[in-house]
Design a protein around this nucleic acid. Structure first.
Lengths: 211, 211
DNA sequence: GTCTATATGTTGATAGAC
DNA sequence: GTCTATCAACATATAGAC
């Protein structure tokens, strides 16, 4: 079945499956070809080298996790809504793509320079600017007495940590606790709202503000 | 220099460096030999295969992260002290061994069965038992009105997430924020006490208990 | 125990027919 | 565009001298 465009899409989907689970070093071109139901030579016909195919997959992966947090933090929404949006987004994403976070961190541990590649091509996002806007929002809320003073870097890192890390621990977690897959998914769905609540609670001032 | 015992130790140290950074698939026996300052054939003389050498390193890595949390949670110490101990332990560990957590999660994502190997040999720890003891402590504190009702699984996962995840994000984090290594280490050292404080705060009851 | 040289298998990549 | 057959490079592992 000579289907030009469809074949490329099937290769990309197969490569995603294999690369996400095994990483660049562990993945085999033969396995990707099998998963795509085509021949190994086709992979090189469409993407020349394993590295080029991998780059496509990895840059797409970064595109799923980096821009969302930047745009959300830089928006005009109230703090509580931002935390809800971010938590909901990552829980949805990682319930459907569980291997994504380990794939990304392992790739960047092996070769941190791959990140630059993404930042250059995605010139749309400016970390310093969007984060600066979020910083101003924090300072305003502090000045109004709505929240206690806090380093926004810790705040964001706490939020992302509690959303993402459980999925990285999943293989270990379910085996130690003795949990089935469905139970784990119900468990992390509880966290979807629990985590932003905890974050909001952590920035409440000691005395409640006067009405 | 024919030094029997010393050579084995140097191989293990070199293997740790290379495996931690690149994982099983990315590591090369030649690179381990170079790092150890010996010949490639010596690796096989001491450890037969790459897999057997890797197992030694991986099981040691699990031994650094799993037993500590189990014994601490199962102890008789008060809750706040347990959180302090765990946070301090992981921050010390990961400041000196930054590649450890990604190494472990990537290994278990590639091959989850490796965990069983550890649990079988380390028959000393019983997750259900130690965790059950921690559960009872939580229930007692709830009954006394000292803390609000909470699922201890979420509680522990939140604690570990906020301690470990920042080190996994380190390569990405420092490049996006534009942070130097020393600044990052100062940053996570702030978290050493900040995280257990946040955890304790998250379980405080809505109304303070009567004196 | 330590080394050099080599065997053996695997993998990414290409050549060429259809 | 798609396939089969094959190449060339590399990596693990072993043989054998010292």
């Amino acid at each position: 079945m000579p289907e030009t465009d469809n074949t490329e899409a099937r290769i990309l989907e197969a490569a995603k499956q294999v690369f996400y689970r095994k990483g660049l070093d562990g993945a085999r071109m033969q396995e990707i070809a099998d998963e795509a139901g085509i021949n190994k030579a086709m992979l090189h016909y469409y993407f020349r080298t394993k590295e080029k195919l991998f780059d496509k997959i990895f840059l797409e992966a970064l595109g799923k996790i980096l821009p969302k947090i930047a745009t959300t933090l830089g928006s005009d929404a109230p703090l509580a809504e931002k935390f809800d949006v971010i938590s909901g987004y990552y829980h949805d994403l990682l319930l459907s793509t569980p291997y994504l976070p380990v794939f990304v961190v392992q790739t960047l541990q092996h070769n941190p320079d791959r990140l630059l590649q993404f930042i250059i091509t995605q010139s749309g996002i400016n970390p310093a600017e969007t984060f600066g806007k979020f910083l101003m929002q924090i300072q305003q809320e502090v000045a109004l007495g709505n929240i206690r003073p806090i380093d926004p870097r810790h705040l964001v890192l706490n939020l992302i940590s509690m959303c993402v890390f459980p999925f990285m621990m999943r293989p270990m977690f379910i085996r130690i606790i003795g949990m089935k897959d469905e139970a784990f998914e119900a468990f992390v769905n509880e966290r979807r709202h629990l985590v932003p609540q905890l974050i909001m609670q952590s920035i409440q001032p000691d005395q409640p503000p006067p009405d």
